[in-house]
Amino acid sequence: MGAYFSEIFRGLQSLATGLGITFKEFFKPVVTVPYPYETIKMSDRFRGHIELVENEEGKPKCVACGMCQRACPSGCISLASKSVEYEVEVKGEMKTKKKKVLTKYNLNFTTCSLCGQCVESCNFGAITFSKEYNLASSRKEDFHFDLLNRLKERNS
């Protein structure tokens, strides 16, 4: 009989302890953010979708070697290039040389798993992660990014 009542007493005591803890939490500062009105700044290393990096002239740094395309596990990068002849001065002589210029750089973000192997494989530092995370849409096409266009829009 004594054990019965002592258990009830200890049980009520444990409930009161719990209520005390939750009561204390009322006076703690708020830790959440009212999201659409306030947003959190993403950390420097946050991995959004990839983005092309520009050189001093505002052109993409990319030399269209295709390493990122090969490194990608899910094949979400597709790029195209054309060769352009240009003239350089080598030892006082004008010579024509060929180089590849990027004409298309598409990212299919629907299959990207943000592993970062494209950025890691790039020897020219031509791609980086964006900080964008407010991506929501009901249409699949909204996640097929034309990165070359995005770069142009950023510059204009």
Binding site: D44, R45, R47, L114, C115, Q117
Partner: peptide, 23 residues
């Protein structure tokens, strides 16, 4: 938050590489 600042993602990390780390 702490892991995101290092690895870049919150849940599905791809941080370790063969031989070391991403950063």
């Amino acid at each position: 938050d702490m892991l995101e600042a290092v690895t870049g993602s919150r849940l599905t990390y791809c941080y370790y590489r063969f031989g070391g780390l991403y950063n």
